[in-house]
Amino acid sequence: MLLAKEELVRVLRTEGDNDTADRIEGSGLPEQIDTDQHGDELAAAGLDRTQLMAKLAGGGFGTTLSP
């Protein structure tokens, strides 16, 4: 699944998870994050696949996702 790095950071900050948002911003991840391809980088920044899927299921990312 693809999602915009900027949108991920925005949602994390909205939820008050500024530490993870800062790590994502400074991680070197591309502007379009592929959750499968970049799973290790996301986990290293403190956002594991289970957490990310929970946020996605909650609708926090609106329509910025592509299958």
Rank of each mutant, 00 (worst) to 15 (best):
M1N: 12
M1V: 00
L2N: 05
L3Q: 11
A4V: 13
A4M: 13
A4I: 14
K5W: 01
K5I: 03
E6S: 14
E6Q: 08
E6C: 04
L8R: 05
V9S: 07
R10V: 13
R10P: 12
V11I: 13
L12K: 02
L12G: 10
R13M: 06
R13D: 03
E15N: 09
E15D: 12
E15C: 07
D17G: 08
N18H: 11
N18C: 11
D19V: 13
T20P: 03
A21T: 08
D22A: 11
R23I: 01
I24D: 01
I24C: 09
G26F: 00
G26K: 05
G26T: 06
S27M: 07
S27A: 00
S27E: 02
G28H: 05
G28Q: 08
G28C: 10
L29W: 01
P30E: 06
P30D: 01
E31Y: 05
E31D: 15
Q32G: 02
I33V: 11
T35K: 07
T35D: 00
T35N: 10
T35Q: 02
D36I: 10
Q37A: 13
Q37R: 14
Q37N: 04
Q37E: 15
Q37K: 09
H38C: 00
H38T: 10
G39L: 09
G39S: 14
D40S: 12
E41Q: 11
E41H: 06
E41N: 05
L42T: 11
L42N: 06
L42E: 04
A45K: 04
A45Q: 00
A45R: 02
L47F: 03
L47H: 08
L47C: 07
D48T: 08
D48R: 14
R49E: 11
T50K: 15
Q51Y: 09
Q51L: 07
Q51D: 10
Q51G: 06
L52M: 09
L52F: 10
L52W: 11
M53N: 12
A54L: 07
K55L: 15
K55R: 14
K55Q: 13
G58A: 04
G59R: 00
G60P: 01
G60Q: 04
F61D: 03
F61I: 12
G62S: 14
T63C: 09
T63R: 13
T63Q: 07
T64N: 08
T64R: 12
T64M: 00
L65F: 04
L65N: 03
L65C: 05
S66N: 15
